[in-house]
């Protein structure tokens, strides 16, 4: 946890340096509505959200499907998807304290940081939880693809690359050209990371941002249910 936070802070410093250098070179010292304070806040909040939403994905379920241990999960009297969601929410609550807060504190203490207006705080909390739900929905589908592919490492790797760029980690999605931002609006990607950041620093419409998150949280949860139901009926469970 301490090692994780240390790495996280170093990368935060690097990202902040690169973005502030770009800002410095830009006319008027702003890019797409980002001034220095917004950029600092974007970087440090993003560093905190990384682990909170498990941006790059995880492989716990995929490994259990691959080894066949998923049979143990399937004969328990529970709904596997809901059980995993409960587990993930517990993990997120723990990460909120251990991984989300520290980089934000670093950013707020050492650099010009922009806190949200009081009425945005509750919306930010809702948006952050929705980001976990959307991320869970995506990770569940990526993991469940193992039922059909037998080995989902390719999908995992692709997902890791895609989320880094398309969720707003590399640069804020507002830096993207108009057409790309429009296209991303039709995917769940911004909802995983850029949305809670936007709510925090006050970019874009609150209700559109949160509405987009709600839509994808529900849609992905239902897609996951469907996928699991199909997998259980159609697909062979591995191993003797």
């Amino acid at each position: 946890m301490i090692a994780g936070t240390a790495t996280n802070v170093v990368f935060g410093l690097l990202r902040m340096a690169v973005l502030l250098a770009a800002l410095d070179a830009a006319p008027g010292g702003r890019i797409a509505g980002y001034d220095v304070a917004a950029t600092v806040t974007y970087v440090w909040l993003g560093q905190g959200l990384l682990a909170f939403v498990v941006l790059w994905g995880d492989a716990a379920l995929a490994n259990r499907i691959r080894s066949g241990d998923v049979v143990v999960d399937l004969y328990r009297p529970w709904d596997l998807q809901q059980a995993l969601l409960a587990e993930d929410l517990g993990r997120a609550a723990y990460c909120a304290v251990t991984r989300l807060v520290p980089p934000v504190v670093v950013g707020a203490l050492l650099f010009p940081f922009r806190w949200p207006t009081p009425e945005r705080w509750p919306v930010f909390l809702v948006s952050a939880v929705l980001a976990v739900l959307v991320s869970f929905g995506m990770r569940f589908l990526v993991n469940a693809s193992t039922f059909w592919l037998l080995d989902n490492r390719g999908v995992m790797a692709l997902y890791g690359v895609a989320t880094g760029i398309l969720c707003g980690l590399t640069v804020p999605l507002d830096f993207f050209p108009e057409w790309a931002r429009f296209a991303l609006w039709f995917t769940p990607m911004p909802a995983i990371m850029q949305s809670p950041i936007d709510v925090f620093i006050g970019h874009g419409s609150l209700w559109l941002t949160v509405g987009h998150q709600v839509f994808w949280a529900v849609a992905l949860f239902l897609a996951g249910r469907l996928a699991l139901a199909r997998a259980v009926r159609k697909v062979v469970v591995q191993g003797g």
Binding site: G68, D69, V71, V72, L74, Y75, R76, P77, W78, D79, R233, G240
Partner: peptide, 21 residues
């Protein structure tokens, strides 16, 4: 079993020698 898996799980116990619950 396959239609009422959850119901069944409450009534039976399963031990797999090569897996862990």
């Amino acid at each position: 079993p396959s239609r009422q898996r959850k119901e069944l799980a409450r009534r039976i116990g399963v031990v797999f020698g090569q897996r862990s619950q």
